[in-house]
Design a protein around this nucleic acid. Structure first.
Lengths: 132, 132
DNA sequence: GTTTTTGCAAAGTATTTGCAAATGG
DNA sequence: CCATTTGCAAATACTTTGCAAAAAC
């Protein structure tokens, strides 16, 4: 039975993640957190991101291209990834939670969760024909 | 400009993928295809899966846990992943293509595509309380 | 004959893990 | 003190790549 003990590193990772909204990778977080804890290791960052994700305090976003991203916003919302600049952004759109019911309808198992990612070209890349 | 040349290996990979519906990984395909082409290399499998995916003949499924899966069925449909047995299965459900319109509504960029994955416990794992 | 594809091996990413030392409760 | 977490380094998992030879056209 594993009791959770406080750690400054974990706290700092979560704070950092709550302060930004660009869905950073473990490595981006590692780089930033080193300014506060210069000796923190990448392994610790990965371990804490996994742990926070397991207990539901953050969300892992698997993009299908490169490293996983992390998001401190656990409210139901969807993401968009620009195929040019690769930025991961929040999408403002109406709730589509009912697709879960839709999926459950003729299914014998249990649908617990779902994740949606939209792909395309972001506003900036659309206008400039280059990456951002 | 790159012209596409026939290759038996590529053809075989596509046939194999069309014959099965379990969304295999590159490595599973590699193992199977070796019974036909014992000298095929894993690199060739990866290269062809990428190529087929790029030209839209197959679909890559990124699961967020382990290797990517591949699917020869390119019709719009959604997938379910059991968090116990990790199987990736097709979901029979009504079309939810309108979430794309929903996402486009207040978005300045271009939504080209989307992918949905449902997570939970499959019927078999639900009944047996163990993996399959 | 020129271009594309292959097999092989090596390299490249992303992530996890073993372990002794440090920290938390 | 005992359990958990850390830093470090090594290991692992997955995928891509350089290159000379083979195959396609």
């Amino acid at each position: 039975m594993q009791a959770l003990k406080y750690s400054r590193q974990r706290e700092s990772i979560k704070e950092l993640l709550m302060a930004r909204h660009d869905h950073p990778t473990a490595d981006m977080i590692y780089t930033d957190i080193r300014e506060i804890y210069p000796n923190i290791s990448l392994g610790t960052v990965y371990r804490n991101l996994s742990l926070l994700s397991d207990i539901g305090e953050i969300k892992k976003i698997t993009t299908g291209d490169g490293a996983d991203r992390y998001d401190a916003d656990t409210h139901p919302h969807n993401h968009f990834i620009c195929r040019l600049c690769k930025n991961v952004m929040d999408l403002k759109m109406e709730d589509i939670g009912y697709i879960k019911k839709s999926a459950s309808k003729d299914f014998d198992g249990i649908i617990e969760d779902y994740s949606v990612i939209f792909y395309g070209i972001c506003a900036l890349c659309k206008d400039c024909h280059k990456e951002h």
